[in-house]
């Protein structure tokens, strides 16, 4: 069962997402000062960093909510630098935001259906069935208003809504934030399952240990640029990671 739409296999495969020298910010404040990173098709990449280093700004820029001030974003073979958010969703780059941003006044089912807003009706029923299979708790609460769900369920719904868009690459922004330890555990089991199904993932997290356990590679962001990068195994052993992450 694959929730992801894989791009056609190519001979010399360029990265699915290729970000080079990305700069972005708000007003006079520059948050991203030249971020470069890549995600290959089918790869799980973690972006780590403390609060306020620019992780969320990176996601907002990648998903077109914020216009980049410089640099280049290539996705699935085309340049999407400065493209508008709807075109980016259409291309299959789907962002599950920090704070979930689900529609509290709509039912769980309506939230999921709107997830495929950019895809239209043809594949919707089948995708919905698969997402409900992945999240049995959402299936039970389909008719309930999304605002009445618990925090963990709302996070599941946000991810489910993202999957409804048939992502080529899914960006998960702090999926474990504000969840109880038990739910964090569950969340990473789910992320591991999505990886195993072949979904390309950019996992943006503060939870270093568990993120490195599911990711193949990771980038550590500090002061708006990449301070450290490498394979997850190497980074897990790197003492500099602790230093960079804790901002000491």
């Amino acid at each position: 069962m694959a929730l992801a739409r894989r791009p056609g296999s190519q001979m010399a495969e360029p990265p699915l997402l290729d970000v080079a020298g990305l700069r972005a910010g708000y007003g006079a404040f520059e948050v991203l000062r030249g971020v470069s990173l890549t995600v290959a098709a089918g790869e799980v990449v973690a972006v780590l960093g403390a609060n306020g280093v620019g992780k969320t700004t990176l996601n907002r820029t990648l998903s077109g909510l914020l216009r980049p001030r410089g640099g280049r974003i290539r996705f699935a073979g085309s340049d999407i630098t400065g493209a508008d958010h709807a075109a980016i969703v259409q291309a299959g780059l789907i962002h599950v935001p920090e704070g979930r941003r689900i529609f509290p006044n709509l039912t769980v089912r309506e939230n999921l259906l709107l997830g495929s807003y950019a895809r239209g009706r043809p594949a919707r029923a089948a995708t919905l069935a698969r997402v409900l299979q992945t999240f049995p708790r959402l299936a039970e609460r389909q008719r309930q208003k999304a605002g009445s769900l618990s925090g963990g369920e709302q996070q599941m719904l946000a991810i489910g809504r993202g999957l409804m868009a048939q992502p080529v690459l899914l960006i998960l922004d702090e999926p474990s934030l504000g969840l109880s330890p038990k739910l964090v555990e569950e969340m990473f089991v789910l992320i591991g399952r999505l990886c195993a199904e072949g979904l390309s993932l950019l996992l943006v997290e503060q939870n270093v240990v568990q993120s490195l356990a599911v990711a193949a590679r990771a980038y550590v962001i500090e002061h708006g640029s990449v301070a450290l990068s490498g394979s997850a195994d190497a980074l897990a052993r790197d003492t500099r990671l602790r230093t960079a992450y804790l901002g000491l």
Binding site: A86, H95, F103
Partner: peptide
Amino acid sequence: TDTGRAIRAVAREPEGAALVGIR
């Protein structure tokens, strides 16, 4: 309808709506 749901979604959560491709 999808459009009706989109209107209700934008009413409460415009940024979330933008992230599913609604303008």
